[in-house]
Design a protein around this nucleic acid. Structure first.
Length: 287
DNA sequence: CTCAGCTCCTGCGGGC
DNA sequence: TGCCCGCAGGAGCTGA
């Protein structure tokens, strides 16, 4: 469920609790999520200091002082919640005012900041792995990813090159993490609306000018969503448990039957299904 | 290579 | 109230 803006928001929320802090205890409460956890996970994490939290696509990467990097993915329903980082806490001491463990709390870290970091994932489509830091960029889950949509490599030239000759629906192309890394169902729908592109249009049949607009729309919607702390529909929370509020800024996503938000457009937002996923768009202003 | 469909898993809301 | 169905911010895998 979480897309790039939600993952980035979680990463930022984790920084005060984890960056520079040591993992005093790693409570691994099941064998794995989507895949089995790596061997001796708790032992390898216990005592490790988190040097830096990074994000690549929808993955959070925690570089440790053990020369290993922990890789986290939230899947559809994953949440990471920090507790015990409030005022008046004493660094280096355990605090006992953490909420009781809940159903689907799979991994719990007690940090020497006094913070507790809990990874909860009802559907268990999430992932957690540990790999040598030097090999992290080559992790099988990361190695095929396309450029970051907020980076310089993602632009109209790039889209022209990647879309050329492709007949797949533009929406499917943008959902493909090998083309661009970090978009998901919500932000693809929103970006296509802003760019005025029909989600079913074959990707190879969009002119350069319109791809310029599309690249700009992708960047804008992601930046605005990060600014808003992500979108909270069902499971998603920021690391401090607060809701994001970008869902109030959706123009088409989950708005089937409502009037198109474009000024003067008489259209109604439509819902269709593309490769098994809901697509929302305005048939009048998206061509 | 390209593309569509299926699958993993749990929870929730709507209709009857 | 209870049951069944469809649907959900992902993405790897299979097979045409």
């Amino acid at each position: 469920m979480p897309e790039l803006p939600e993952v980035e928001t979680v990463r930022r929320g984790l920084q005060p609790a984890m960056e520079g802090a040591r993992i005093l205890r790693a409570d691994i409460r099941r064998e794995g999520l989507r895949w089995p956890f790596p061997p001796k996970l708790a032992e390898r994490l216990t005592g490790a200091r988190v040097l830096h939290l990074r994000r690549r696509s929808k993955y959070i990467l925690a570089d440790l002082d053990t020369d290993e990097t922990m890789l986290l993915h939230l899947g559809m329903s994953g949440r990471i919640i920090v507790s015990g980082l409030g005022a008046g806490l004493v660094p280096g001491r355990f605090h006992h005012d953490h909420p009781a463990p809940e159903r689907h709390d799979h991994v719990v870290f007690d940090m020497d900041t006094g913070a507790r970091v809990t990874f909860n994932d009802a559907r268990r489509f999430g992932a957690l792995d540990l790999i040598e830091t030097a090999l992290a960029e080559g992790h099988p889950l990361l190695v095929g990813l396309g450029p970051e949509p907020l980076g310089n490599a993602f632009n109209a030239d790039y889209l022209v090159a990647r879309f050329r000759g492709r007949k797949a629906p533009t929406k499917a192309m943008l959902m493909d993490q090998r083309i661009v890394a970090g978009l998901g169902n919500i932000y693809v729908c929103e970006a296509l609306f802003r760019a005025g592109i029909h989600p079913a249009r074959p990707a190879g049949r969009i002119g350069r000018m319109r791809l310029e607009r599309l690249a700009q729309a992708v960047r804008a919607v992601l930046a605005e969503a990060i600014e808003a702390g992500g979108s909270s529909l069902r499971d998603y929370r920021q690391a401090d448990g607060e809701l994001g509020y970008f869902q109030h800024a959706f123009r088409v996503y989950d708005r089937a039957g409502l009037p198109c938000p474009t000024d003067g457009c008489p259209g109604t937002v439509r819902r269709i299904v593309q490769s098994g996923r809901s697509t929302h768009y305005c048939p009048r202003c998206q061509r």
